[in-house]
Design a protein around this nucleic acid. Structure first.
Lengths: 139, 139
DNA sequence: TACAATCACTTGCAGTTTGCAAGTAAAAGT
DNA sequence: ACTTTTACTTGCAAACTGCAAGTGATTGTA
């Protein structure tokens, strides 16, 4: 089952991003890949938001088709598949940190520490380098 | 018709942002408000992506309920309504610029100039101040 | 060797959301 | 008076989503 890429709605950059990321689940899968280092189907299923398995399958296929995720068999377990973020996915880290900072400011129940919020504001590039450096993303 | 706020899916910051912004249209309405200075229903309808009027109504109501948009009658035209972004909406500018930068890098048909991409990377805070400064947002 | 558990999905189906076309009501223009 | 503009609402079909259950290929266990 091949996932086709979404139709292009306009030539706007924000619109391009939304064509790929504009739903309730895609960015959560990327969060798990980029910030939680999750790699297996079951890992994503276990996240707090409780994504349905059929939706997860579809999102992983779409991300693969979009060049943001790679898929390879687990060398240690033949029934397991390993998903990994590509550079294209890792390049979303700055945008995701800014989204998290925004939530930290407006979510009354946020768990974001003032310390992390300050780090995002004052040393975003250093933080991005730190996070991306631990990824060893595939291309 | 009151729009209710979306249910909270988890305590994650990225998830909080997606609860409000995780669809194909909301961020485009905010783009029009924040970067194109559109203020009237018909302005949003006229954007390139061709949002349907019922969806636009719903999104504006939801943004209002979320405290990101204010609604007031146009003092010069009693049948017209003026929508304006609040501070909460304006604070999304950094995240949106990062999304646009990502698209500029990966969209083969991007219209983003290397000059703007460089400005976002090297003087984001100055650019944000410039954009937000022109807004005179309501709260 | 049998059997249970794990893993990555797939399937069926009901409920929700979306998109298109058309319609409405009030105010403004001619 | 009548046409247009503005901001919507309505009806309905199609698409998307979520839940529960099932599948088939390993892998782990007695």
């Amino acid at each position: 089952m091949k996932e086709k890429l979404p139709p292009r709605r306009s030539s706007c950059s924000i619109s391009y991003a939304l064509d790929y990321l504009g739903d309730k689940w895609t960015l959560l899968v990327l969060r798990d890949l980029l910030f939680q280092n999750k790699r297996r189907f079951g890992d994503f299923l276990a996240s707090d938001e409780k994504i349905a398995s059929n939706i997860l399958t579809q999102r992983l296929r779409r991300l693969e088709a979009a060049g943001m995720v790679t898929r390879q068999p687990d060398p240690d377990n033949r029934r397991s598949v390993l998903y990994a973020p590509t550079r294209k996915a890792a390049d979303l880290v700055p945008a995701m940190l800014e989204l998290a900072r925004w939530s930290g400011k407006y979510d009354p129940q946020t768990r974001m520490t003032p310390k992390l919020a300050r780090r995002i504001a004052e040393d975003r590039d250093g933080l991005v380098a730190e996070i991306v450096g631990q990824l060893r993303e595939k291309d």
